[in-house]
Design a protein around this nucleic acid. Structure first.
Lengths: 247, 247
DNA sequence: AAAACACGATAACATTTATTAATTTCTCAA
DNA sequence: TTGAGAAATTAATAAATGTTATCGTGTTTT
């Protein structure tokens, strides 16, 4: 299971073979969490760091008026709360969208890693900073792109992030969100998500059915929404022919 | 000038008196930058860390279609790029909005601080993480709040951030942005910014004229937009009566 | 002082997106 | 297998926001 994390961090340009060995020796206890369950709640002071191992998880906030904004989608290999250690208190919640497997890593293990393995530390930093880049890109997406391009952009991003951890095909990937969930990610109503999805489909850009996202023509899709993955800060790995062509 | 930074970091709950002394001994070289000038450009690999000393600066991205999204407003006491050291390459640009004073801090000084002063290090971490919280809140703002509340929320945030560094009055603060700039922050057209501003004014919530933001009734404004500053992670300072009531 | 220019205000109109509600399809549990 | 609930679809209408264009005001430049 830790392989997911290794595959992801391999794109940071910092991880060495020795680091991989170190990580593989970690003994992770995994557990299954039902759908729509909070992993961490606003105001919590989490003691452990949670690593997502399967399915999708969301950072979200719910406003006084009952509206929900999803601020991040976490996919396998992502950490929930690597950064909260210092802050102490969560200013938002994290919940599964579907039933998921997660690992809880005691904070002590993380501290040991950051104290003794500088390149792993740098890789973890990199992961946090890539998350930040993603957050900024979502803001750009929401502020400046029309609904269809915005949605297409999100799909391109998720597809690439899943490719990196070996969980997508070149032609498509899973998308276990309801249209309402998607709306809460994009800041759109569920009805408009539906309309937009059909619009993308009619343009032969995206075909979403039964939680599977299919891209008839990925290149065209990326051009359509101006997707440029620079903000994910991926470093192509030299010794992996399959991933060198992804980006 | 470093006092600005100290005042800000004092809200992190980590800074000691000794830290303040350490910071005061830094010898900063400041320079003035004209309006609308890039401090850092996309793809740069900045060698120094830039600290804002006066006026407002923006993180932004420009899309293929020419639209600009401002992803952050930096106010005096904020760092531009504390985090890019590891990432290496900027995925966005930073530009002044009006003529500004900034200090360039050699990376070596930052490294010295983080190597030898753990509580300063934690305070710098805190600043980065508060930035992240702000970014998330902007996303919530854009996705779920109508234009008037969204704008009011931005004003409440800026006012509080300026209060912290001693640059605002309880009743208002400076806002050196054009309506177009505001639109690029909020994801609204310039025309709609104008409409919304008048709307807020007619509700006696905000009065913006000549770059000065006046709040006839701050409490009502905060209630109007559901402003809750938890996401800024401010720790009230015990020995400062003026700031303890701000939050 | 005059000219050029940026900014703000206003209006008319177009477009996008939200809301509500009704209907169908799908999924999952009994 | 069936029934109940969730999710997706569709349509009609309303509301929010964008676009374009014009005009006035103030500011900077010459």
């Amino acid at each position: 299971m830790i392989e997911l994390l290794i595959r992801k961090l391999a794109h940071s340009a910092f991880l060495t073979e020795a680091d991989c060995t170190t990580l593989r020796q970690l003994n992770l206890r995994t557990r299954e969490v039902p759908a729509q369950q909070d992993l961490i709640r606003e105001d919590d002071r989490p003691e452990n760091v949670i690593l997502i191992l399967s399915d999708f998880t969301s950072r979200y906030k719910i406003l006084d008026n009952g509206k929900r904004q999803i601020m991040a989608l976490l996919v396998p290999g992502d950490f929930c709360d690597l950064h909260v250690a210092i802050l102490g208190q969560m200013d938002h919640s994290i919940a599964t969208l579907t039933a998921s497997h997660v690992a809880e890593i005691p904070r002590g293990i993380i501290e040991d890693l950051t104290n003794n393995y500088p390149s792993i530390t740098r890789a973890l930093w990199w992961a946090t900073l890539a998350d930040e880049g993603t957050l900024r890109e979502w803001l750009v997406n929401m502020g400046q792109r029309p609904a269809d391009q915005q949605m297409a952009h999100l799909f391109c991003e998720l597809h690439l992030r899943l490719l990196i951890v070996g969980l997508a095909k070149p032609s498509g990937c899973i998308l276990p969100l309801t249209q309402k969930d998607l709306g809460d990610v994009l800041g759109l109503s569920g009805v408009h998500v539906n309309r937009t999805l059909q619009d993308l489909r009619s343009q032969d850009l995206v075909d979403l059915r039964k939680k599977w996202l299919q891209f008839p023509n990925l290149e065209r899709l990326r051009r359509f929404c101006g997707f440029s993955p620079k903000y994910l800060h991926l470093t192509p790995r030299v010794n992996d022919s399959s991933s060198s062509s992804i980006i």
